[in-house]
Design a binder for these strands. Structure first.
Lengths: 337, 337
DNA sequence: CTGTTAGCGCATTCAT
DNA sequence: ATGAATGCGCTAACAG
């Protein structure tokens, strides 16, 4: 492998001239620059990432923390990851993926030892402790998701409260008088899982605003639980005609229960889910959704981190995305997912 | 940040002693080792990855190439990626994810400049050119998937032919007399997409072996196409009672078509899909599957690469996994996915 | 068993 | 506008 020294020799210049020709950090005469570039081309030279990182104290690498401890793997996470990686690549950054269960140790290792210049955090809880630790260490990071207190922190997130509000209003506008929310798991809600908490907030406030009785249940992420949830909701409210959910794993079960109860979707029951378009498209027609902008979120997460690394310090970028509702036409009763 | 020099000073030993105490590459007396470890603990020292990489010419980093050009993002890919990353982490390797569309340039950059020690390739075609290029360069890599010619190459893949055979035999044993294969897209089949080609092989040979008329169709990865495929198959063969598919995106449509045709699943039509357990579980009961071992494949891919890096050994590891069939009980007609 | 030293490939400060 | 020299943090000879 060619090194800068090889280039220097072949171009008949000094090592530092090659370096400066590459970085443009000081003026180089046109003739010498051409000779350098020619030599680089001849020798198929590519700068050595580690040598550069050592000397410059910048690795041009960012990492995404994805502790997949729970079972929550989905196509949504894949979109976060791939689009964050893609954005990083476009900006000349390498992209490291860490799935270490021992996050604290990893954070120290990565933030302390120059392995990466910055971090992206996912699966943020309302009082996520990792964010504080990184902020205290003064280490650059961005979040996909957000906390209760986000002072000085860059993040991008879906506005779940707004998403649920949009869904509920859509149903109310369509004439529904009883609309329920099927939320994430009880344990997540209790643990302060942001999307669950905010979905409930959005639902509650919208129900109050439009004069609907609030009917919200937390539901385990399984089809089985989805079946039960819908059956119980319907038993309690025989006039139930609309359901909004952020619980993707429960959708299949809710659809099954609807059929078992003789509630054809969308004719006798309307279901609106907050999921990625990719998931919605797995189903045969009739999944009306609030399109989860996972790809955009992944991309923005990486970009706001890199912007911060490149120079533009404070203030942090904070973006709460609003998602659009897509009505997918039905050619008959829903039999999704 | 503490460096090895700081540790050496605090422990009252030389720099190299610290290095050797850490690497274990030469004997260190117990007392000095303890002093060194104590100093490391006191100063919260962590080795600097880039310094180490520069000096040792090994980065302890592997990269996974995931060109997500097509639309083929799914929970299956996520399992490949996260489990490969996890395995890498467990072995002390950092995990780089590259989604660069310009793969050749990336391969050169990464393989040439010491950024990574080895690569994992995905989405392998029957005559994948990337593999040859890497083999010619003598750069360590492993594949998730496999080519027609795999001489000297490490890989792990699902045995699609075997998977389809298992599915067909399962249906035949259950008394079906007309079993069709709904394959991947025509374009993929034509392009030599391994899973599609091998699924067809396995289906054809099994059909011949058990005396079944071969009924195979290639199908675009959409519910719409799935609907049409099933309707057409049924029109051509009114006695069709079993369908095997590797086309996850078409499943929802096939289920819908079945219902529209009055074919209750699983009572009047049996459907067996080669998909991950995670996808199967999105559906309400009754998706019988050949469980796609994506997690295991990701993990094995990383491990066989790392084994090669650590041991430097030929012969390559080549593993064709057989997947088990899981019958999921039905509590009524199928309304999945 | 331990210390001294020479790089690894590059960015950067001093010179000129 | 260019060169020479220093050092980033570490590994691995080379010397005891």
């Amino acid at each position: 492998m060619a090194t800068m020294a090889d280039i220097a020799q072949r171009a008949g210049v000094s090592l530092s001239t090659v370096s400066y020709a590459l970085s443009g950090k000081r003026a180089i005469s046109e003739p010498t620059r051409r000779r350098v570039l020619q030599a680089i081309d001849d020798l198929d030279y590519h700068p050595h990432a580690h040598g550069r990182a050592l000397a410059s104290k910048r690795s041009r690498t960012i990492a995404l923390f994805f502790p997949h401890r729970a079972k929550g793997l989905s196509e949504m996470h894949l979109e976060f990851i791939t689009h964050a990686a893609e954005a990083a690549g476009e900006h000349g950054y390498a992209f490291l993926l860490s799935t270490s269960p021992d996050e604290d140790a990893e954070i120290l290792r990565m933030s302390g030892q120059g392995l990466v210049d910055g971090l992206i955090l996912m699966e943020i809880t309302l009082d996520d402790p990792r964010a504080e630790r990184l902020r205290d260490r003064g280490f650059p990071f961005a979040m996909i998701g957000h906390r209760r207190d986000n002072a000085g922190i860059s993040y991008v997130d879906l506005d779940f409260a707004d998403a649920v509000e949009t869904a509920v209003r859509h149903l109310v506008d369509a004439g529904h008088h009883a609309v329920a929310l099927v939320n994430a798991a009880p344990s997540l809600l209790a643990a302060g899982y942001g999307p669950a908490v905010r979905a409930l907030e959005g639902y509650t406030r919208t129900a109050a605003d439009v004069g609907l009785d609030p009917i919200a249940v937390a539901c385990e992420p399984t089809p089985r639980a989805g079946e039960r949830a819908l059956a119980e909701l319907r038993a309690a409210r025989p006039d139930l005609s609309g359901v909004v959910t952020i619980n993707r794993e429960a959708i299949g079960g809710m659809v099954q229960a609807a059929a078992d109860l003789g509630l054809a979707i969308p004719d006798r029951l309307s279901l609106v889910a907050v999921v990625t378009e990719r998931l919605a498209q797995l189903f045969s027609p009739t999944l009306t959704t609030i399109d989860f902008p996972a790809a955009e979120m992944g991309r923005l997460g990486a970009e706001m981190l890199i912007r911060r690394l490149e120079g533009g310090e404070d203030p942090p970028t904070q973006r709460l995305l609003r998602a659009a509702l897509t009505v997918r036409q039905s050619s008959g009763p829903y039999r999704g997912p």
